[in-house]
Design a protein around this nucleic acid. Structure first.
Lengths: 161, 161
DNA sequence: GGTTATTAGTTGGTGTCACAAACTAAATAG
DNA sequence: CTATTTAGTTTGTGACACCAACTAATAACC
């Protein structure tokens, strides 16, 4: 694992933006890029996000709520609609009669894979003007922020099996 | 204007994420940080975004729609609600009887300033784990992406007065 | 072991947001 | 001076999001 690769200098074009503005605007640009993919499939951004989360997990409803920063009742509706589209399935577990786990159906998994590729392409377009160096720096920095944020939001995580 | 400041090396912590995933997750983290500020004022993210856009502009309805990537009818409702809260004002112009411009009221301007500070603080928290070097690199890169995106979306822009 | 408290999820009600299609009124083209 | 285009609004409909109230299952407690 490449732990000490350098990211050489980055020539800052005079920033007309503050960091906060830059992050905010970037986030809107990213969301609308994902939104374009959503439109292709007549899905919402939130549905896409749900599928993205379920790519490698089969969490309980409440866990979905936590990860997505939603009220649990919002997740009920979200999963209802995804289920109605045949993308997602609710499973009850024998060891806890209250718990409901959510997982992708075959169709949902297929779609999720396609979405991943398309989002990749669409976001690739967003950064196509950047030199590779910048792109790598961005990946590093974004990963760091996301990891920090996760650590802050879930102080105690058992990395799932 | 600092055009050639260097951004020294960045040690990539092994990225478990693709660039697309990193960007997507970062965008969600940013949005929920802004959402926290929104909650403080019982506002929605979209309302905050609107106020942010109006900080230094007084655009026509349609221009708002374009910038926010919304249908014009969505903007009608958005501005209606903001107007109902006394944050925003519609102005008709004498030179074009159809056009309606949207601008902040005094109250809206005050709130926008407060929001800017709070979003700043909240997003600052998001990047507080990063060394200054990374933060500067991030600003540079985000600005670049946002600028490219704007250029792509508005091929012909007259920079407003 | 039976009562209480907690936890997981759903239901119902309300408000925001987003869109499309149909409409009004003002400007521009011809 | 009619015909068209343009700017905004209206009217429906559906997705989301929240809260408060509810059901059912589990855990706590004495």
């Amino acid at each position: 694992m490449a732990i000490a690769r350098k990211v050489p200098q980055v020539r800052p074009a005079r920033p007309l933006l503050t960091l906060a503005d830059g992050l905010a605007q970037l986030s809107f640009a990213v969301q609308s890029a994902i939104g374009r993919v959503a439109d292709l499939h007549d899905l919402s951004l939130v549905q896409i996000r749900l599928l993205g989360i379920l790519r490698d997990r089969e969490p309980a409803m409440l866990a979905v709520a936590t990860v997505m920063n939603l009220d649990k009742s919002s997740v009920t509706g979200l999963v209802d609609r995804a289920e109605r589209r045949g993308l997602v399935r609710r499973t009850t577990t024998p060891e806890d009669g209250r718990a409901v786990r959510v997982g992708l159906t075959a169709r949902g998994r297929g779609l999720a894979q396609k979405l991943t590729k398309q989002v990749d392409r669409e976001l690739g377009r967003l950064v196509e003007g950047l030199p590779g160096v910048h792109r790598r720096a961005l990946l590093t920095i974004a990963s760091q922020i996301v990891a920090d944020d996760a650590r802050r939001r879930f102080p105690d995580v058992a990395r799932r099996p």
